[in-house]
Structures are given as structure tokens and as C-alpha cells.
Amino acid sequence: MSEFIQEKRQYPRKSLEKTAEVLDNDTGLSLGILEDVSKGGFSILTDQGMRPSETRNVTLVLPGPQGSPHKVSLTAECIWCQTITERADFAAGFALRSIEDQDEVALNYYIRDYQVAGQKAGELEES
């Protein structure tokens, strides 16, 4: 059996060093904590099971400059959900389905400029 898993993502994801909350726009409640993000999707750690193909309207509450949060609203489809035991009950992956132009620009800047855990400035990967 091969030890390599074929990567199906179109864009590389960046793991986050700072906590970023994901809010459910329909309920106003926290859906979970953002684990990684890309131009095409994200994954979260959550205490809720998600159904694949379930679509959610969410807001990513991203760490901003000088500690001020930046909110990006979008619609995303759950692609997978699995039980985990380390840091949360579940991990779930989402594909971005729709986003307003200004939120897309803000998300792309955030992904481009965000320094991930363990990287030095200037070592950011291409997205």
C-alpha cells in the first residue's frame, strides 16, 4: 500500500497559528475553530458532526492587524467530516461555494500575508 495520499485540493492550505472562530450565520453560534484555510476552502475543529454535501453560510473571524478581527462571510459545502480525539470531537473540511467580491479580496490578502506557524517572514508558500 502506498504511503502517499493523492492531494485533491486545487490550492494549498495554510495552517493557522492564531485561533480563528467560524460562526454559523443562520444561528449566530460558533461552528468551530478554523484549522487551515485556502482560496478554495478550509477545515475546522468542531464539537458538531457535519454531513457531507451540507451547505453552510458562515463567517470566518480572522485575526487582523493590531489584534482587531476581520470578518469574512461566505457559503461553503462540507466535503468530509471525521471523528477525532486530540483537540475536538470532529474535524470537517469545506469547499468554498460563494463569496462576495470584497470578502474574497480580503480572504485572498489574508491567505497571502498570513505567517503560518513555524515560518519566517519571506518563506510563505505560493497560494
Rank of each mutant, 00 (worst) to 15 (best):
E17Q: 08
S98R: 14
C78S: 11
T59F: 01
T27S: 15
R87T: 05
K18C: 05
G32Q: 02
S73V: 04
I33A: 12
K18Q: 11
E100P: 12
Q119K: 07
P12L: 13
R13F: 01
C78L: 04
R87M: 03
E17C: 02
L29C: 12
E3N: 15
S127N: 10
E86K: 13
T75E: 13
A91F: 05
A95W: 07
Q6H: 12
L34Q: 02
F42Q: 02
R9N: 11
G41E: 03
R9P: 09
V72R: 01
Q82A: 08
Y109C: 12
S53F: 11
Y114T: 05
E7N: 13
L124H: 09
E126S: 14
N57L: 13
A76D: 10
K8P: 04
G118Y: 02
H70R: 10
P63Y: 11
K120W: 06
G40Q: 07
T85K: 12
V105Q: 15
R87H: 06
G49R: 07
L107H: 02
S127V: 11
K8Q: 11
I33V: 15
P65D: 06
V22K: 00
E125P: 03
E123Y: 00
T75I: 12
L31S: 10
T75Q: 14
D36H: 03
K14Y: 01
P63H: 12
R112T: 12
G93P: 13
R51W: 09
S38W: 03
I99T: 08
S15M: 06
T83W: 12
I111F: 00
L62G: 00
A92T: 04
S98D: 15
K39S: 10
T55D: 14
T75N: 09
G41N: 09
E35F: 00
Q82S: 09
